[in-house]
Amino acid sequence: MSIQHFRVALIPFFAAFCLPVFAHPETLVKVKDAEDQLGARVGYIELDLNSGKILESFRPEERFPMMSTFKVLLCGAVLSRVDAGQEQLGRRIHYSQNDLVEYSPVTEKHLTDGMTVRELCSAAITMSDNTAANLLLTTIGGPKELTAFLHNMGDHVTRLDRWEPELNEAIPNDERDTTMPAAMATTLRKLLTGELLTLASRQQLIDWMEADKVAGPLLRSALPAGWFIADKSGAGERGSRGIIAALGPDGKPSRIVVIYTTGSQATMDERNRQIAEIGASLIKHW
């Protein structure tokens, strides 16, 4: 067993022997301040990774656009098919120029040779490549099948209805392509620590998230040296922004954090800054 596999296998073990965790309302004060600064709703939840206990939450059962955070769930569904012998990570998928959609920095470079399922998941999570996500959605049967996968996990809230990039439209009061912070946090925890996926697939999923290259201005910008984070960000229309993450000190994750916002007129930089400040408060009061 590799060191990384050992780390993920012992996530519940280490967490069980940690000192009790206590909620700190100071972080919620910052979440509410972010709402004021952005002029928009902000949803927040913080779960203990081992027990699933909610440590703090704000608007945990209000719907927010998922945006690209759905790509972690998508690759979880792909990995479940791999575990069941219905898919192979090494299978190569070929596609054409007509398949390319807006923001496809990886797939646009491989029109000639195609990409493997493993490479597509890596591109979808680490670079948020939209064509990679659409190609992977095709392998599982489309958005409705991802929703069905989530329902089978016990998540009857999260739903995907459309493809990239239309799913980022974020129309107010439109339930399409949305989740709730509580539902997303619980589902992410199941994917990373539950028995739904094999140990190898859980490790692969967290490795992809740990290698995320496009979430630097968010929670990662607030992390002290030595902290662990595996995350996936999302951005959408109407001032929408979000991030889902597993993080913790001492090089291992111990909490799940989900943050979503929508309806702001603020710039992307300002949305990023507010999420980073929430992260800084979380870490300060850990």
Rank of each mutant, 00 (worst) to 15 (best):
E270I: 10
L192V: 01
W286E: 04
R273M: 07
S68K: 03
A276M: 12
K109D: 03
S233N: 14
D129N: 03
A170N: 07
D250I: 14
I283A: 08
R41G: 09
E87C: 05
E210C: 12
I171C: 06
V82H: 01
I206E: 01
R189N: 14
D161C: 01
D231Y: 09
P249A: 12
S221V: 14
A182R: 08
E195F: 00
P172Y: 02
L137G: 03
S201P: 04
R63D: 03
N130A: 15
V106I: 09
G85E: 05
K232D: 07
N272G: 13
M268Y: 13
Q274A: 10
L219C: 14
C121R: 00
T147E: 04
L160S: 05
P60S: 07
I229M: 13
T178C: 13
G226P: 05
T27W: 13
H94E: 14
A77W: 03
A276C: 10
E195K: 00
T69N: 04
G141S: 02
G279W: 15
E62N: 08
G216M: 05
R176H: 01
L150Y: 14
K232P: 05
L120E: 08
T158Q: 13
T27C: 11
D207A: 04
C75F: 01
R176L: 00
P143M: 13
E56M: 09
L247H: 02
R162C: 00
R118Y: 07
E210G: 14
I229A: 13
D33A: 07
K284H: 05
Q86S: 11
T138M: 08
E26H: 07
G141Q: 01
L167A: 01
P181W: 00
K232V: 15
K232R: 05
T126R: 14
R271V: 14
N152W: 09
T116Q: 04
D207F: 03
T112C: 01
A235F: 12
L120C: 02
K32W: 06
G85W: 01
I283F: 05
I45T: 14
W286A: 02
H156S: 10
L191W: 00
A170K: 00
A225S: 11
Q265Y: 09
S104H: 09
K252Y: 14
I54E: 06
K32P: 08
R241E: 14
F58P: 01
A230F: 11
N152H: 13
H94K: 11
K284T: 05
H156R: 09
A222F: 13
I244K: 15
I256S: 11
Q97G: 03
L192P: 13
A170V: 00
T107W: 13
Y95S: 12
T69K: 07
Q274T: 10
D129W: 02
K190T: 15
L135I: 12
L192W: 14
L47K: 01
L136K: 03
T138H: 05
T116I: 02
V257R: 15
T27V: 05
G216V: 15
E164K: 00
Q274L: 10
A215R: 15
D83W: 12
T131Y: 09
S201F: 01
L199G: 09
N152I: 10
R162Y: 01
H94A: 06
R162E: 00
L38D: 03
S57F: 07
F64N: 06
R271M: 04
S281D: 08
E46Y: 10
A132P: 02
G114N: 10
L223F: 15
I244F: 12
E119G: 02
A132F: 12
L247C: 08
R92Q: 08
M268C: 15
K213R: 05
L205N: 06
V31R: 09
A132H: 00
K53S: 05
W163K: 12
R176W: 07
R273I: 14
S281I: 04
E166F: 08
